[in-house]
Design a protein around this nucleic acid. Structure first.
Lengths: 243, 243
DNA sequence: CCCTCTCTAGGTACAGCGTACGTAGAAGCG
DNA sequence: CGCTTCTACGTACGCTGTACCTAGAGAGGG
């Protein structure tokens, strides 16, 4: 979704100044003078990724990351102006793991492969979908991904803009699915609670269509293939030429 | 996306215990004895919604909400066991604003209308997409929404399960779009920075396909209709019968 | 009527967060 | 060598969610 018309006045409030995110990729890592730095953006990001993988995204605090590096907390601010930017770096660090294979010319098949790669990445780094969804995320490795995606979708005949819009859809679906999968995995107890609540709601009579859908005999729809089935639909939607 | 196969062992770490979310909708609001309570879940949620609308989701803290109600901070914990649950309540409070019109039988048209209603809601409450994406969100009003959606999609001929999977796709796309729209709106300065960075990246030669997509003459693709165009694709994907 | 028991309101306190600011010292340049 | 510029990092502030505790309101049983 490369661009869009805002509702003219988006909303009255929001964190009073619209903030100046100042892309971290635009500021140079070092300036040249002074003593040799003991760390680097990537080493810091890598440490943060390790922590997030092991203990979840909430465990990633500036103090925690600094401690993992044997550094003082405030030293990190020589590399990363704000924590927000550390998250950007983490995202790109994770995205670096992609290993792209040359496009085969079969757009659909290539997209299915890419989609599965992406889901695997999200499973390896459960904190990743939340980050991808929260911010655009345009590091060098994210650009490599975009470039590969564009190569893969080149045979579709769609314009560059249309393919970028489609990429947002593609990414969005996969991250959303990965996120869902995590909450589903998070606890059988929670899952059980939810099912109980839903059936109770369905039986209350307040939600007749929900009850009807519950009662539909239809094929059970193997949940293990839900991702593949929906991914297929998404790709269809992506590749449908604009009318 | 009603259910899925986890990757057997989802991930080693995560916040050590998988947590027990304990749906707030399952615990009764009051027990009956003792003094008359001065507030209610909905009044608290409404106050939180007002704050989030005016100053963003980050401004919603227990102290802030309590102050807005003229209550002591800790009093809120008599209504809401954890802040997490307050967010659930906020979500359902916002979703209560939907005003559903009877299905016309034209599935596509009804979905387009519902989609626009949802986008409007997300614009009115910019914090909403983030919440919807982050957790399942199954309050009474969310159930009303689901029920309406099921009524609208009944003529599609798809099974209940398939329609639930499709709903996840539908919701996910709209929230994602709304989220994107916000960041795009957030600052022209940021937008400018990003465009500069991207063109610089495209010109660097490292991303040939990105450069090619940039150079594609193709029709400019009116950004104001990006939502409608993509929503149309998404609905197509939803309604395509399973092969 | 009063006693008792239960529930609510709210204060205090704690661990942790992001980060503004200031100081000490290392390293490159003239 | 001295100057300048950078890095490392300690301290401190205001904020967060919330565990725990006390005081008192109000209904139920005798």
């Amino acid at each position: 979704m490369p661009s869009s018309k805002p509702p003219s006045s988006p909303n009255p409030g929001q964190p009073t100044p619209p903030e100046a995110p100042e892309l971290i990729w635009l500021r140079p890592e070092r300036t040249g003078r002074g003593p040799k730095p003991a760390h680097s953006r990537t080493s810091i990001a890598a440490a943060a990724v390790r922590i997030a993988d092991a203990e979840g995204l909430d465990a990633v605090s500036m103090r925690r990351v600094a401690a993992a590096l044997g550094a003082g907390t405030m030293s990190l601010y020589n590399y990363v102006p704000k924590k927000e930017h550390l998250l950007d770096l983490m995202l790109d660090e994770a995205v670096a793991e992609y290993e792209f294979t040359a496009p085969t010319g079969d757009c659909r098949a290539d997209l299915v492969r890419l989609g599965h790669q992406q889901l695997d990445l999200c499973r390896r780094h459960p904190w990743l979908p939340a980050l991808v969804i929260a911010r655009p995320g345009i590091g060098p490795n994210a650009l490599r991904y975009t470039d590969h995606y564009l190569a893969v979708t080149a045979p579709s005949g769609l314009s560059g803009g249309a393919r970028m819009e489609a990429m947002a859809l593609f990414n969005g679906f996969i991250c959303q699915y990965a996120q869902y999968e995590q909450t589903a995995v998070a606890g059988a107890k929670w899952q059980a609670e939810l099912v109980g609540y839903l059936t109770q709601a369905a039986m209350s009579g307040d939600y007749p269509n929900l009850a009807a859908a519950f009662a539909t005999p239809g094929p059970p729809a193997d949940p293990t293939t839900a991702f593949d089935r929906t991914l297929d639909r998404v790709i269809t939607a992506m590749l449908t030429p604009t009318p």
